[in-house]
Amino acid sequence: MRIRKNIAVSEEGFLFNPTTGDSFSTNSTGALIIRLLKQDKTLPEIASELCDEYDADRLLVERDLEEFASLLKEYSVLD
């Protein structure tokens, strides 16, 4: 599970996919996940980092992460 190399992420949390021409906006949680994905972290690792950073239930985080990853895949942001 990897973020495509040519995906551009701006400081303000905007994504641009040069392959498809699509732009996306994300919130701070999403931006953090994408940053961690870029560092080649696995989903369980990311879940742990999210739980460290935020006051959140691990199960809920895993569920949201799963859904977010599938969304990224659908939009061809993830390989």
């Binding site: 994300t26 919130n27 006051d55 969304l71």
Partner: peptide, 15 residues
């Protein structure tokens, strides 16, 4: 340090 309030990640296509 107090942890931040969690909010689920969102991704919005800029249509």
């Amino acid at each position: 340090m107090e942890k931040k309030r969690y909010e689920r990640p969102t991704l919005r296509k800029m249509n």
